[in-house]
């Protein structure tokens, strides 16, 4: 019988988030660092539709809920969709 690896060592296989995250952060820093939008220039950015989920938190929450129940993944809908507790696995 082949010897199995402990669970914590399997975390080492998760390479793509470890690579993708710093690259994305670096790209946003480089791009954003060249642009400073003043408060009086934010007419369009202040529109509700420019917020996550076009500004509707309850809609994002419902989508996170049903995707969690029908997909094998969790998260990815922003910081407001965490937690909740649901025995729908």
């Amino acid at each position: 019988m082949a010897k199995s690896r402990p669970q914590w060592k399997r975390l080492g296989r998760l390479k793509f988030p470890a690579i993708f995250l710093p690259i994305s952060l670096g790209m946003m820093l480089l791009h954003g660092g060249c642009t400073v939008v003043r408060p009086y220039q934010r007419e369009h950015l202040a529109e509700r539709c420019m917020s996550p989920g076009f500004g509707d938190k309850s809609e994002v929450k419902f989508r996170a809920h049903w995707e969690y129940a029908r997909h094998g993944t969790q998260g990815g809908f922003g910081d407001d969709a965490g937690g909740g507790g649901c025995g729908c696995n």
Partner: peptide, 9 residues
Amino acid sequence: QVLSQTMVG
């Protein structure tokens, strides 16, 4: 991150 007057990431 605000990227321009009409774009946010």
